[in-house]
């Protein structure tokens, strides 16, 4: 049977939903599933990994791997891949996943596919589909001259799969000498936002230049809060210094594909449209009825955002919180 290694990201003793999704995906595809997790107490994830389809869980529990260390994680993960000899290695196309998988690809001289939105297995051949030019095109990607295929999958894009929950995964320790690293993690400053990152968010409310100034962001934030949405911004807003780059949607920012994308005061430059056009439903609020964003919008609202948005917030609150 083809074997899939799934790199599991976890926080506060729980596996991230984007990693659980991959365990279930691999299991329901008929593959033998081995989960891999790093950090002290990683073996405590065995029950959750087992419930979601992993028969085995390989861990490296060194203190050096408490936080993400590109060199340490790279070394530990490539060692496990060499021992396990899987058909493919799956991970979430997160900031960590993209960093780690490429380092491992270099160490093992195997191909890496970033940001995949579909993955298929035919025997030992792995094929994936991914966007390029931040979504202005898509292409298939295949692997060659590689002993395994390293595949990073975007969160929330695979068809949801269910699996029969298994017992706790069998834990194997992979010990490794990590003392001679040339990379030291000095400090990790946790972000204050408890909202999902844009790349994982189900609902995004984004602000454009139409909001006129950073002091008006609260209008957007209130709308987002009423929906439990994450907040994004156009490049114009980021370049004006009204929002950090981590909030930028579009080419030179993040490509997103939420279920619902609400664009407020965004005209829709080609770079922005590329980054959000694969959203399932798009709502646009803009005072210029000729704005290009309306060509992509499922529902277009022409008018003054400062009038419409607070009313939308009220309506959402009424619907969702009463």
């Amino acid at each position: 049977m083809a074997k899939a290694l799934v790199f599991v990201e976890h926080k506060n003793g729980k596996i991230k939903s984007s990693s659980l999704e991959l365990l279930r995906f691999a299991k329901s595809g008929g593959l033998e599933v081995v989960a891999v997790a790093f950090g002290p107490q990683a073996s405590s994830l065995a029950a959750e990994a087992g419930q979601n389809g992993a028969a085995n869980l390989v861990v490296t529990e060194s203190a050096e791997l408490q936080n993400y260390n590109p060199e340490g994680y790279g070394k530990a993960f490539s060692e496990i891949i060499k021992n396990q000899n899987p058909t493919c290695v799956l991970g979430s196309s997160s900031v960590l996943g993209k960093d780690l998988f490429a380092r491992v690809g270099g160490l093992l001289k195997c191909g890496v596919a970033t940001d995949c939105v579909a993955v298929t297995f035919e025997g030992n051949n792995v094929k994936a589909r991914r966007p390029l030019y931040s979504g202005k095109a898509t292409a298939s990607i295949e692997f060659k001259n590689s002993s395994t295929a390293l595949v990073l999958v975007r969160p929330n894009v695979l068809e949801p799969r269910t699996v029969t929950p298994g017992g706790p995964a069998t834990v194997t320790q992979s010990a490794l000498q990590l003392s001679s690293l040339k990379t030291l993690v000095k400090q990790v400053v946790q972000g204050t936002s408890n909202k999902l990152d844009l790349s994982e968010a189900n609902i995004i409310v984004s602000a454009g230049r139409g909001i006129k100034g950073p002091e008006n962001f609260k209008v957007i934030e209130e709308l987002a809060a009423s929906l439990g949405a994450s907040v994004g911004a156009s490049r114009a807003v980021v370049d004006a210094g009204w929002a950090p780059h981590s909030m930028q949607v579009g080419q030179t920012g993040k490509t997103v594909s939420p279920t619902l994308y609400i664009a407020i005061g965004i005209s829709g430059a080609i770079q922005h449209l590329a980054g959000m056009s694969s959203s399932k439903v798009i709502v646009a609020v803009n005072k210029d009825k000729e704005a290009p964003i309306f060509q992509k919008a499922t529902y277009g609202l022409v008018g003054d955002l400062f009038e419409i948005v607070p009313l939308m917030t009220q309506e959402f609150k009424k619907l969702l919180h009463s």
Partner: peptide, 25 residues
Amino acid sequence: DTKTRHYEFQLPPPRPAGRTLEGSA
């Protein structure tokens, strides 16, 4: 040294036409 190949390039599927809503705010 080549480990991957991109092929079958396509444009993203066109979005279904949306609609503009009318009325007061």
